[in-house]
Design a protein around this nucleic acid. Sequence first.
RNA 1: CGGGGUGUGGCGCAGCCCGGUAGCGCGCUUGCUUUGGGAGCAAGAUGUCGAGAGUUCGAAUCCCUCCACCCCGACCA
Length: 631
Amino acid sequence: MRSVSTPFWKTGPIWRCHLRLSCQSWPPLLNPTMTASSAKQDALRSFAVESLPFNCQIGGGMRASQFFISTLKEAPAEAELISHKLMLRAGLIKRLGSGLYTWMPLGLRVLRKVENIVREEMNKSGAVELLMPAVQPAELWQESGRWDVFGPQMLKIKDRHQRDFCFGPTHEEVITDIARREIKSYRQLPLNLYQIQTKFRDEIRPRFGVMRGREFLMKDGYSFHISYADLEREYRNMYDTYCRIFTRLGLQFRAVAADTGAIGGTGSHEFHVLADSGEDAIAFCPASDYAANVELAEAVAPAGVGAGAMVAMEKKATPGKTKCEDVAAFLGLPLTQTVKAIAVMAEKEGGNEFVLLLLRGDHDLNEIKAQKVLGELRFARDDEIVDALGCKAGYIGAVGFSGRVVADRSVAVMSDCVCGANEEGYHLTGVNFGRDLPQPGTVADIRNVVEGDPSPDGRGALELCRGIEVGHIFQLRTKYAEALKCTFLDEQGKDQVMEMGCYGIGVSRIVGAAIEQGHDERGIIFPDTIAPFTVAVVPMNYAKSEAVRTAAAALHAELLAAGIDAILDDRDERPGSMFADWELIGIPHRVVVGERGLKEGKLEYKGRSDAEATMVTATEMTTFLKQKLCG
RNA sequence: CGGGGUGUGGCGCAGCCCGGUAGCGCGCUUGCUUUGGGAGCAAGAUGUCGAGAGUUCGAAUCCCUCCACCCCGACCA
């Protein structure tokens, strides 16, 4: 709120400081008598040319001495995640407040490259770009009913007349308002509008740098249709477009069937960048296109039924063995033959009901699934367990228990299993449903899927991985169109509610996700398509060797002419520190220009992930690099 | 919001228990030497010790209040 209520002119000293800084960037214009080395003047000249507005962020050549590079040897203590640490160390971002980051020049180049790829592919798909206000009046949100529903995640602000506004966390309301005002006829449909814009969500806990910032850059698109069939067609078009975008970004990703969550509507897919640090667990089937969030993935019963009862039930002493793993090891039986009983209290009219949930020893409870069966529930307290079973947790089981039992599908097909004896220090072996205890009252899917489970589509086994959600597409259907009366006249001249889809991409999050996926002990490894610069030209002994200076400048110019985004490191740093910088920053290709190689007419090439450098004839370097960049 | 933790120069940290001169490494500035993997020597600059109130002759250190930030949980691009 402080930033909102403090007028910018009261931040005078900072403001003036910026002015002074920018003046210093322009000495050739303001102070022509300034003295500088010829190399530096050269650099300033090229900086001035490249700084013209029509040649803005991407493209154009750059010299390292004039670019704002600030790398750190040690990562600030605030960062935990590898991508966050590397972004801070490489100087791509600086933190202003919790979940608020400045994109430094180097980082902004990456962000803009991601943004441009998203924009190009969206344009190719037939979507049309527009830009909506970040600040939105409360009335629209009240009309859709979300002013109160959205909750504290929405930053609400007041203007000088005490009128309510919010800093847009999303734009369904605004776009639907545009559509209802501007679209009158079926002839104007379908239409897909998108924007790339800053959103603000007052996250409960911002973390991981730009991966979960409060202010972030998002591509959000919205489509309008005369029929559900046409929405489905466009949804498929966006699905394909998203696949092209993430492929071009050089990311390993997966489209995942998703819940529709708070935004509502039916059909929905999330796009996840695969990374071990991802916040979401994903189950997928390599043999088919099945993929789902682990919380949602259906755990089907193992194929076939168990072998049937082979042995008699026996009570075995298992002193001190309370975990399934320990019991199985102690008895010399496989973990998959044990059954764990989890005691919960399910909410019921007129008090709670004590329920035993049965899971195979190697499986974990999925509380969301269990709640779908039992309603609201919590774990039972120790005293409640003793009351119901006469025994403390660790040795409990369903044998002799007369209350409600919910068994997971995979437990229902087990035989000769091991479970607690409801007596401290004892377990039962050879337990069979229908013989030693009644069949469970309810059989349901109440566990998380595990690696190797059959895919719900029956086409192979599931594998697990973790992912970072970078995109999400929804079929909104008529949720917002109805609330905001967004209608059109059909061919019969009848009023119809529009079908809508919405399609989001977390542009700034992609930068973090790409780094999670591409890094090593030396730093970031950017894909060619989004690296801040594609090639670093690194001269050895730049200040003293005219041959090196000439060759480096010539190569730099040649690369730029060939359309390759190259930076010339004219800082005359020591070689080790230049190498370390470019490796930390993640520039994918490096060319070293040194007197040693020049004597034989050669330059040294090294890809960011290559173990060894390659000598390349100087005259062939540009061709060589072009091939590298295509392949 | 619940739980855990941290605030000391640009970054990483020590000092706090046991009150008395604010310190180290990196970075920065200047000079000389060095120049194919984060150089060496020398000289320097940079701190309202997160803020406020209190105890005390004296507070980075003890007490109180507040703030900021980070980490673990429920939300989401």
